[in-house]
């Protein structure tokens, strides 16, 4: 009884979150007002974070919230607030080319997704990271980052540092 209850609960959460995230992501691309788009993007990211929790990965979920919803969308909102939205909305921007390119890229991505789902069975090989090990999630992620994936980890750290220094230099040049 109780186990069935838990599984039912998981399905309800999964279906609810999947539905909300799809609707929200559709609203992201259809809203005229960029701030509203950004807010629906936050909603989408939050729903995906809940899906990560369902997959026994609370660390990834919370990093998704902190980095994407908290930091990146916040910067986007910050920049949009400094623009004059009325002027942007009135001047109907010529976005035909970018629309064509965007549709092409989106279709490419869709085919990629479909191919990867069809070509391989959705349940992959069972690795060493079982739900039991993932219960101690943060330590597991930290260990694998500093043992198996230490090279990509350090490379991305250097890349980010270079990007920060570059941004500082570019912003200093103008004045």
């Amino acid at each position: 009884m109780a186990e069935n209850f838990g599984i039912l609960f998981q399905w309800l959460i999964f279906l609810g979150m999947a539905f909300v995230s799809i609707v929200a992501s559709l609203l992201v691309i259809t809203r005229k007002n960029p701030i509203h788009s950004a807010l629906f993007m936050v909603l989408t990211l939050l729903c995906v974070a809940v899906l990560y929790i369902l997959l026994y990965s609370p660390f990834i979920a919370i990093i998704q919230v902190v980095v994407y919803a908290g930091a990146i969308v916040m910067l986007i909102v910050f920049i949009i607030m400094l623009l004059d939205l009325e002027v942007e909305l009135r001047s109907k921007m010529k976005v035909v080319y970018s629309k064509i390119v965007g549709v092409f890229l989106a279709l490419l991505f869709l085919f990629g997704l479909l191919y990867s789902v069809v070509a391989k069975p959705p349940t992959g090989e069972i690795g060493s990271l079982t739900p039991d090990r993932m219960a101690n999630n943060v330590k597991t992620v930290g260990e694998s980052l500093f043992t198996d994936y230490v090279f990509p980890f350090e490379i991305s750290a250097i890349l980010l540092t270079v990007a920060i220094i570059g941004a500082v230099i570019l912003s200093k040049k103008r004045t």
């Binding site: 807010l39 609370p58 660390f59 919370i62 919230v65 902190v66 909102v77 219960a135 999630n137 943060v138």
Partner: peptide, 22 residues
Amino acid sequence: DIDIGLLYVFGIASLGEFGIVL
């Protein structure tokens, strides 16, 4: 009592900034 307790606090705090900014 979750494994990511401290990170959860920071995640929610960063969402709270939206309230003031918006």
